[in-house]
Design a protein around this nucleic acid. Sequence first.
DNA 1: CTAATTTCCTACTGCTTCAGTAGTCTAACC
DNA 2: GGTTAGACTACTGAAGCAGTAGGAAATTAG
Lengths: 145, 145
Amino acid sequence: MKLSSRSRYGFRAILELAIDYGKGPLQIKTIAEREDISNKYLEQLISLLKSSGLVRSVRGPHGGYELTRPPAEVKLDDIFMTLEGPPISVECLEHPEHCPRCMDCVTRQVWAKMQSAMMGVLESLTLQDLVDKAKQGDSSDHYQI
Amino acid sequence: MKLSSRSRYGFRAILELAIDYGKGPLQIKTIAEREDISNKYLEQLISLLKSSGLVRSVRGPHGGYELTRPPAEVKLDDIFMTLEGPPISVECLEHPEHCPRCMDCVTRQVWAKMQSAMMGVLESLTLQDLVDKAKQGDSSDHYQI
DNA sequence: CTAATTTCCTACTGCTTCAGTAGTCTAACC
DNA sequence: GGTTAGACTACTGAAGCAGTAGGAAATTAG
C-alpha cells in the first residue's frame, strides 16, 4: 500500500495553488520549481486535477492554474479520489455483487472499516486547514535566531 | 491504493486457521478449496505468515499449518504488516531524514493521520473478533426458511 | 500579423510489482 | 521405503508507476 508519487506531488501542487489563491493563475514551472518536481510530469498531474473540476486553467502568456473554489471549500477527499482513487480499493467493496460470499464476508468488513477511517480523515480536512498549518509553520521560523 | 490479493487471500487463509484453532493443523489444499485460492499461490502467502511467526507448520502426512497463538492474541495489524507492509507507506514517514522539508511538510501530516487511522482499526481487532463475527453470520443463516 | 508564451494532448519507455505457475527438494509418518 | 505433506527457488505474462518527449492549440504583446 505504497502511496504513489502522483498523490504526493499532486497534493503539494494543489497546496501551492491554495496558498496563492486569489493572486491570479500560477504557472506549472513556478510550482515545479517550488516543489522540485519534473515540469512535464507535474503537467499531467495538474491536468488530472483540472479534469475533475478542482482546478481551472488560463492559457497563453501570464497564464497558469488556479483553484475553482476557495480553499476552505475543497475537502481533501476530493483531491485524493482524483489522484489516487478510493483508498483501499477492493473489488468486493465497489461491486458487492461480484463476490458470491460478500454478504457474510468478515474480511470485507475489515476493509470497509479501514476505508471509512481513512475517508474520515480526508473528509475532516480542507485545503484551508493545510494552508493555515503551513503558514503557522512559517511564522515559527521567524523566531529563529 | 488497491489492496493486493496477497492481503485479501492471506487474511482469508489465516481466518480459516483461526476458525479451526485447536483442532490440529490445517492443510494448504483444504484452505485453498474452502477459499477458492490457487494451491501454489496460497503456499507462498502462508509461508509469509510463517516467517513472521504468526503461523507454525507441521510436515509430513496429516501435517499442515496452525496459529502459534490463540486467535484472541493475534491483532490484525500484525497480519497486515506481514502481508502488505505499512498502510500508506511513504518514504518521508519511515525515513524522515530523507526529505529536507519534512519537519514542516503539511502533506506529510495528512499521510501520518491517515496511517494512524488505519492502524487504529487494525489494532482494535483480533482474529477472535473475526471468528466471532463469522460464526454469528453462520448462525443467522440457520434462521433462514 | 507575428512571435512568444503557456497550456493541451498523445505516445513512448524503462522499471518494478503483482499474481500466479512449475518443479524439485526435504521432512515426517506408516 | 513409499506416500504425504510442506519448503524453496526460479520463471513469466500482464499491469501500473514515474517519468520523458514532442508537437498542437490557444492567448497575448508588440
